[in-house]
């Protein structure tokens, strides 16, 4: 653990000075500030942010993450020749990137809210959930990126795989849900759709946030079922746990691969 902390310290130091990291934070800052200027109210800003976050964070995390691992190869080799366990190295590098990305996102998004000053108590919890979802998505897609990048030696292959995974979770999967709804229109689909949402972190984050904004009322019976599941504290607990599981699983798979990998 000691090795991890030391690597982490230097990762922070290193990443926080890099241009793309600053760009990433500024991106969220500009978007959020822009939304405040042009869209107005807290609720609308949060809802509009949600769209952006759900598309941008997975993409940025998975691409940055993969690039970062490829880029850090020599550094990893340097570390590997030092008396440090591989587990510590993986932890250190993963946490270094995912925590700085999360910090960049939270700072970039949160700052305009702080500057605007008044956050309605009603929307404060929505904002918190939005930030939590964004942070969890960062962890999830960084973990996926690390897994891909340690698996595929070839950078082009790795980045390609990362793009495909992003496409799958943000576009293809929802197309599949749509087909299921179309095919099985006559059946009570709600439990199946809840299950399918849990199986995709992007959808899960989206549904969780949607219901936070009480969109369930628009969904009639389906909405009621979803609301019942997701708004209960158990539902929220389940959702957050599943999101965390979504980060832990690829992380462990990547770690296992990394521990056996030849450099």
């Amino acid at each position: 653990m000691d090795g991890t902390a030391k690597i982490l310290k230097y990762e922070f130091h290193n990443i926080l000075r890099s241009k793309w990291m600053i760009g990433y934070a500024i991106f969220f800052l500009v978007i959020t500030d822009g939304l405040f200027r042009f869209v107005g109210t807290d609720a609308k800003v949060i809802l509009s942010l949600m769209n952006i976050i759900l598309a941008v964070i997975p993409l940025a995390s998975i691409i940055f993450g993969a690039m970062y691992v490829y880029h850090s190869r020599e550094f990893i080799e340097l570390l590997l020749s030092q008396p440090i366990g591989r587990k510590n190295i993986y932890w250190g590098i993963y946490c270094g990137l995912s925590l700085t990305l999360s910090a960049g996102f939270v700072a970039g998004t949160g700052l305009p809210f702080l500057l605007e000053g008044v956050i309605d108590a009603e929307y404060l919890s929505a904002l918190m959930l939005l930030l939590t979802a964004g942070v969890l998505l960062t962890w999830i897609f960084t973990a996926l990126a690390f897994w891909i990048a340690v698996r595929y030696e070839d950078k082009v292959k790795g980045i390609g795989a990362a793009m495909l995974i992003w496409m799958f979770f943000t576009v293809v999967y929802d197309g599949f849900i749509l087909l299921v709804i179309y095919w099985f229109d006559d059946y009570p689909l709600e439990p199946a759709i809840i299950g399918m949402s849990l199986a995709n972190p992007v959808d899960l984050a989206r549904v969780m946030l949607l219901l936070k904004f009480n969109v369930s009322a628009m969904m009639g019976y389906t909405g009621a079922v979803f609301h019942q599941f997701f708004s209960a504290s158990t539902g929220l607990g389940v959702s957050l746990s599943v999101l965390i599981l979504w980060a832990v699983t690829p992380f462990l798979l990547g770690l296992r691969y990394f521990q056996k990998k030849d450099f």
Partner: peptide, 16 residues
């Protein structure tokens, strides 16, 4: 036609 599909509200796919 398919009210259940509202669960895809604000999905990137739907925007596309």
């Amino acid at each position: 036609q398919y009210p259940t599909a509202l669960i895809l509200l604000r999905s990137f796919l739907i925007d596309l």
